[in-house]
């Protein structure tokens, strides 16, 4: 019994060490993709036609192809034309670009769902474009897009496991290593618990933000 507990602890620590990379990748993606998504969404509904087309093309490509393929492309594909990236850089870059594409569409839909009376009221009060967006429109968009953003944030937890294909030692890979060594199912169970823990924290966090924002409803 005691030896099993020790095994469990050691395995957990080993897998947790691997999960540092998972958490890093996660944080980088969230920190960049959310603001990029908002900015690109604003550009996608701007009055500049070329810009709109460019961004539509971008979201079409990155939402329409597998993330795994995009990872291969950035890591292996680019190296052929002489751009060699560290695995983490390649992964982070791909994740940010990929998730920004999804979030762009989420925020675009959010912006378009705001009643045009809000713009007119702001305009009638002589607010300019930036004041209107920053003070009136975007706070309401952020509130409305919490549920779909939360979905993306959960999917991202699991998508981070894809980096094994770049030979990176993340949470899942550490579990797999233990499995190969011990031929026991415990490491996978530990990995599952850790993923669940992360998604639970994320859901809790988003619920908190939602509560904070919902006072006005």
């Amino acid at each position: 019994m005691e030896s099993y507990i020790k095994y469990l602890l050691d395995s957990t620590i080993f897998i947790l060490e691997g999960s540092v990379l998972t958490v890093k990748l996660y944080a980088v993606t969230i920190i960049f993709a959310i603001p990029f998504g908002i900015i690109l969404a604003l550009m996608k509904i701007s009055r500049f036609k070329t810009l709109r087309y460019l961004i539509s093309f971008y979201t079409w490509v990155f939402r329409g192809t597998p993330l795994l393929l995009q990872l291969f492309f950035t890591y292996y594909g680019l190296s052929i034309i002489g751009i060699t990236l560290q695995p983490f850089t390649a992964a982070a870059l791909t994740f940010v670009v990929n998730y920004s594409a999804y979030l762009t569409e989420i925020y675009r839909a959010g912006i378009e769902s705001i009643d045009k009376g809000q713009y007119e009221a702001a305009r009638a009060l002589n607010m300019d474009y930036f004041q209107t967006m920053r003070r009136i429109i975007l706070p309401q968009v952020v509130r409305r897009t919490i549920p779909p953003t939360c979905n993306e944030a959960i999917t991202l937890v699991k998508d981070t496991a894809l980096v094994v294909v770049l030979g990176m030692g993340d949470l899942l890979r550490s579990a797999k290593e233990l499995f190969s060594r011990d031929f026991a199912i415990t490491p996978f169970a530990i990995a599952a618990v850790l993923y669940l823990l992360m998604t639970t924290v994320i859901v809790y966090f988003f619920r908190k933000i939602e509560d904070k924002y919902s006072v006005y409803e």
Partner: peptide
């Protein structure tokens, strides 16, 4: 200006 549907800022 005052609008038919008020257009107050809900947040």
């Amino acid at each position: 200006m005052v609008f038919q549907h008020f257009n107050l800022f809900p947040h």
